[in-house]
Write a protein that binds this DNA or RNA. Structure first.
Length: 853
RNA sequence: GCGGGCGUGAUGGAAUGGUAGACAUACCAGACUUAAAAUCUGUUGGGGCGUAGCCCCGUGUGGGUUCGAGUCCCACCGCCCGCACCA
């Protein structure tokens, strides 16, 4: 072979790795372990460039760790349950199981040519009964520990599809599929008791030093800890059982400014009133309407209904506050009731203005004015504010100090107590869906809700082996409609009973898969010895879109699995380091149809800004690749055209890994050319002279050691784009070098090693071509010789008053005083000084000289 | 509204407080070629002058700290992301 042929060498070296079995992870050996994991894919059927980028980054880490003497675990699996499979079955017949396993086979076939260092013997899909059966066992253990419970909850209910919708699936108050007006409905659902761990999940964030600060902050905000006062207003003439209303406030310092009390339409008091008063009932129905999305909330008008009830102010019993039912008060935060302080809260201000309620300021700016308020004054924490109508006289208080003083005062006077609340709510896991992990419980008329016996696990989803076809053509949960699947016997009393037909949220599946990878075929959820050895995940890599839910749920599960004895204590935080990579983007090519509607075109159909028939396209700036905008490039076609190494090299170059990278045809072309060039340079080493000047040899080897040093630092710090830039520079040096054969061979072998994490096939081929020992994949990573990193003579810039004016060449270890002398002797410095003495000379060894005049 | 991040050539982007623009793309010029492709070489932040060279300006805007600021601090402008009737 005289030319670089990706197609030939990639298949060849993948087979060589397979034969050598170098990626199979075993517990033997005394090397330190390293567990690298990328977020596993949903089997949609096609891999996309985002997958390529994600898995390439993980592969760089894994291969680098292998080369640096680690025992590496690098597994892959499939997040295989979920709605798309059911939707596909609904749309075109077939069965979600067949659809999913077909997609997995397709995607695996697309992924293997990438040459990833994956231990495929550990592969599993979350829809394998072997996996979800263990998940059911885990669920039962969590149930026994009280980590899961049932309760009534308000959900978005689509009356046409007859299913619960997630908030993201409610658009303009309507179901995303059916278009039907979404109802708020109370259903009995299963919940994980994650809110009990709110404090711990929050505090432990501090220890996650190798997580992006952004992700930690997002989780912190999501958990939403707040400190406030909880107390009750006494009610005048409240209905039976309602002589008081509990409220929670983070601003007790504004209590003297209260002018109304508001309760949620779902508040028990509102529900009592609703029974006897049709006007209240009508209002509550109206107020409960609309989704819970941000968009819906934005549009909803603030509505209140005066119940006629009056609440007594705890510090001024002569002051009576009207009690309103208001549509903006949420039942599931705080107590579902608030007091309104219009002077210091914008939302309360708007409400008070609409309903003509008094606005009573309690703080005033230091520079007070007599003008009436036009908007609420929210005292900024940094600004001095004065506590005017205070409990503690005229004392000056600001921010938290005012809040704390108010809580203290209230507690001393027997009005409520300081409490800490969290925004984080328990995690509802019930889904009225077929394609998910069945919740392994049984409903018995005499025994109630009974856990299934472990020996009966897995509770398997019905297929249609027994000739009972499952109908996905109609809305609702097919498990509910199945003629026989629900029928079972009560595990407790043996009487006929029915199965729970709800399945688990797919986030459950992905909350512990990382633990299962350590022993994917164990007869229990985990094998403690394996988990003890392999956990934690040393490096986790995935998209920022999972910053909150998946990562928070996984942190909860790691704790729950420890409580239930399925993970060792050390795995309380499952991911030691997290890296969130950016997306792959592409320009969008658009034309318009006869009616002016946009028509999108695939990149492969556009060249030079024109379609094949010469029609010019409008180019819309780069955005995330999406099928609807057709700005997608199929990895398979890139691999076919250029090879996997080119795709790998390109997604890593150009942009920092945490940022988006724009896929361009010219960039892919350039990457491919470069790899061919490297191959050619290496193949031409044989033509180099046997002997060359010692200077040329040394210059090349010095450059080689600098490249080793910088590429190593780049790979270790996720600076893959910088490492690649350095490899380009080193390749240029090698190409131009006049060094002899021995030095060039050494340099080329090292170049192959440094490239091997990114372009493993090319590296392997060069390694073999130049008679490297064994496989480059398992060759020890090269070490930079510190002595070779510093040149004998260095160039020092000379600044005059901080501006670069000249440079000198001096030995690298020349003492400061000598450097000073050389600098002062320079023509430019003499000219600038014009006979005067410098005021100051700063010499930073190896860096710079600054002469201050 | 609350929280966070980012602004550097035509473009993607480099730069532990120490020579701004590494590396790459694009463009232009040259070599090789009948020609093209491929390959190789070179130029490219702006302005100026007495043009083998030298000078001035330059990292969103305005200030500040420092011998020295793309980098640190303050204010402003613009863009992006997360959360949100959260009491």
């Amino acid at each position: 072979m005289s030319r670089y042929s990706a197609a030939e060498i990639e298949a060849k070296w993948q087979q060589a790795w397979d034969r050598a079995g170098i990626f199979k992870a075993t517990r033997e050996g005394d090397k330190p372990k390293y567990y690298v994991l990328e977020m596993f894919p949903y089997p949609s059927g096609r891999i996309h460039m985002g997958h390529v980028r994600n898995y390439t980054m993980g592969d760089v880490v894994a291969r680098y760790k292998i080369a640096t003497g680690h025992n590496v675990l690098h597994p892959m699996g499939w997040d295989a349950f979920g709605m798309p499979a059911e939707n596909a079955a609904m749309a075109s017949g077939g069965h979600p199981k067949d659809w999913t396993y077909g997609n997995i086979a397709d995607m695996r076939a697309q992924m293997k040519p990438l040459g990833l260092s994956i231990d495929w013997s550990r592969e599993f899909a979350t829809c394998d009964p072997e996996y979800y059966g263990q998940q059911q066992a885990l669920f039962l253990d969590m149930l026994a520990e009280g980590l899961v419970y049932r309760k009534n909850a308000v959900v978005n209910w689509d009356p046409v599809d007859m299913t619960v919708l997630a908030n993201e699936q409610v658009i303009d108050g309507k179901g995303w599929r059916s278009g039907a007006e979404v109802e708020r409905r109370e259903l009995t659902q299963w919940f994980f008791r994650i809110s009990d761990m709110a404090e711990e999940l929050l505090e432990a964030l501090d220890g996650l030093e190798n997580w992006p600060a952004k992700v930690r902050l997002m989780q912190e905000n999501w958990i939403g800890k707040s400190r406030g006062l909880q107390f009750a207003f006494g009610l005048n003439e409240g209905p039976d059982g309602h002589d008081r209303v509990e409220v929670y406030t983070t601003r007790p310092d504004t209590l003297m400014g209260a002018s109304f009390v508001g309760i949620s339409p779902d508040h028990p008091l509102a529900k009592t009133l609703e029974r006897d008063n049709p006007d209240v009932a009508a209002f509550c129905v109206e107020a409960r309407k609309g989704g819970t999305t941000a968009e819906a909330i934005e549009k909803a008008e603030k509505m209140g209904f005066d119940t006629g009830l009056r609440a007594r102010h705890p510090f001024d019993t002569s002051c009576e506050l009207p009690v309103y039912i208001a549509n903006f008060i949420l039942m599931d935060y705080g107590t579902g009731a608030i007091f309104g302080c219009p002077a210091h809260d914008q939302r309360d201000f708007e409400f008070a203005t609409k309903y003509g309620l008094p606005i009573i300021p309690v703080f005033e700016p230091v520079e007070a004015t007599d003008e009436p308020l036009t908007e609420a004054f929210v005292p900024p924490k940094s600004e001095k504010t004065r506590f005017v109508r205070g409990f503690a006289g005229d004392e000056v208080q600001t921010g938290d100090a005012a809040v704390n003083a108010a809580i203290e005062f209230c507690e001393q006077n027997g009005v409520g107590q300081g409490v800490t609340k969290f925004r984080l709510r328990d995690w509802g896991l019930s889904r009225q869906r077929y394609w998910g992990c069945p919740i392994p419980v049984v409903h018995c008329e005499t025994c109630g809700v009974v856990p299934e016996k472990k020996e009966n696990l897995p509770v398997q989803l019905p297929y249609d082996e027994d000739g009972t076809p499952i109908d996905f053509g109609v809305p609702g949960n097919p498990l509910d409609r199945h003629p026989t699947w629900r029928d079972c016997t009560c595990p407790a009393c043996g009487a006929p009973a029915t199965r729970e037909t709800d399945t688990m949220d797919t986030f459950v599946d992905s909350s512990w898969y990382y633990a299962r990878f350590t022993a994917p075929h164990a007869a229990t959820p985990t094998d403690l010895a394996e988990a003890e050895y392999w956990m934690n995940v040393d490096q986790y890599i995935g998209g920022i879109e999972h910053a909150i839910l998946h990562l928070l749920y996984s942190r909860f599960f790691a704790r729950a699995m420890q409580i239930t004895g399925h993970l060792p204590k050390k795995a309380i935080e499952p991911f030691n380091a997290l890296f969130t990579q950016g997306m792959v983007t592409h320009e969008i090519y658009q034309t318009s149809d006869a009616k002016g509607r946009p028509v999108y075109h695939l990149p492969e159909d556009v060249s030079d800004g024109k379609l094949a028939d010469g029609t010019p396209v409008e180019i819309i700036p780069s955005a995330k690749m999406s099928k609807s905008k057709k700005n997608v490039v199929d990895p398979a076609s890139i691999i076919a055209a250029y090879g996997a190494d080119t795709a790998r090299w390109f997604v890593l170059s150009d942009s920092p890994p945490e940022r988006d990278v724009e896929w361009t045809a010219s960039g892919a072309e350039a990457a491919s050319k470069h790899l061919a060039r490297v191959w050619r340079i290496a193949s031409e080493v044989a033509n180099a002279p046997e002997t060359a000047t010692p200077e040329a040899d040394e210059a090349l080897l010095r450059e080689m050691h600098k490249a080793i040093d910088e590429v190593t630092k780049g790979v270790e710090s996720f600076g893959f784009n910088a490492a690649i830039a350095r490899l380009y520079a080193f390749t240029n040096t090698l190409a131009r070098s006049t060094a002899g054969k021995a030095a060039k061979t050494e340099a080329s072998l090292t170049l192959a090693q440094l490239m091997s994490p990114m372009t493993p096939h090319l590296a392997e081929d060069i390694w073999a071509m130049l008679a490297g020992t064994g496989l480059v994949a398992t060759a020890p990573w090269p070490l930079a010789d510190p002595a070779m990193l510093v040149d004998e003579n260095i160039t020092l810039p000379i600044q005059i008053n901080g501006k670069r004016r000249a440079e000198i060449s001096v030995p690298h270890d020349m003492p400061k005083s000598e450097v000073e002398k050389v600098a002062l002797a320079h023509d430019a410095v003499i000219k600038a000084l014009d006979g005067a003495q410098p005021r100051k000379i700063i010499v930073v060894p190896g860096r710079i000289v600054n002469v201050v005049i």
